[in-house]
């Protein structure tokens, strides 16, 4: 009985992974001129995109670690310490919550972007220039989303700094 339940569960989980991913193809008419340029610059663009892929992986790790450090080792401990001292850190808490939500978006946006760029790299630009260019447009859009999310995280870091300075000023006025 247990074996049947296990096999059943395993089949359901497996079926979930086999479901096709939704295809988001930008229906853009690619002009013959662009097709020719894609073919002409195929080799150098593939090399440039490969380098970009590697740089982005490093950048994502570096920025991601930094953003997590700021959230987990600075914002959250200060909020906890304020709470344990019965001090009002409502503004800081709100910003931390928004920050964490945006970080999750950033995390997902990078996955989507990386998958899109991998698709560009997998497409043979000399044989399938139209598919290559469409994949490139998709990756460009995903990169834009990622960039916006990165900008919002930076904005939350700024806001937290300002809110902390306000809190500190108020605290010093009140208690000293």
């Amino acid at each position: 009985m247990i074996v049947r339940v296990f096999v059943g569960l395993a089949l359901i989980v497996g079926a979930l992974f086999l479901l096709p991913e939704p295809q988001v193809n930008a229906a853009v008419t690619v002009t013959p001129e662009v097709i020719e340029r894609v073919k002409a610059r195929c080799v150098e663009n593939q090399a440039a995109l490969n380098r970009l892929h590697q740089t982005d992986a490093f950048l994502r790790n570096d920025r991601g670690n930094l953003y997590r450090t700021i959230g987990d080792k600075l914002m959250v401990p200060l909020n906890r310490r304020l709470a344990s001292n019965q001090l009002d850190g409502g503004a800081l808490l709100t910003i931390t919550s928004d920050y964490n939500r945006e970080y999750n978006r950033f995390y997902q946006a990078y996955i989507d972007y990386d998958n899109a760029l991998s698709k560009v790299l997998e497409t043979d630009c000399s044989r399938e220039p139209v598919a290559f260019y469409n994949a490139l447009l998709d990756a460009r859009q995903k990169r834009q989303t990622l960039s916006e999310s990165n900008g919002k995280i930076k904005e939350h870091i700024r806001q937290y700094g300002v809110a902390f300075t306000d809190f500190k000023t108020g605290f010093e006025k009140e208690y000293e």
Partner: peptide
Amino acid sequence: KGFSADGTIDKASLNEFDTLYKQKA
């Protein structure tokens, strides 16, 4: 190491956080 979640809040601890946060920010 980051900022400790335990302890009191006083001028020194706020200054410590300020330094750490400004560095990472």
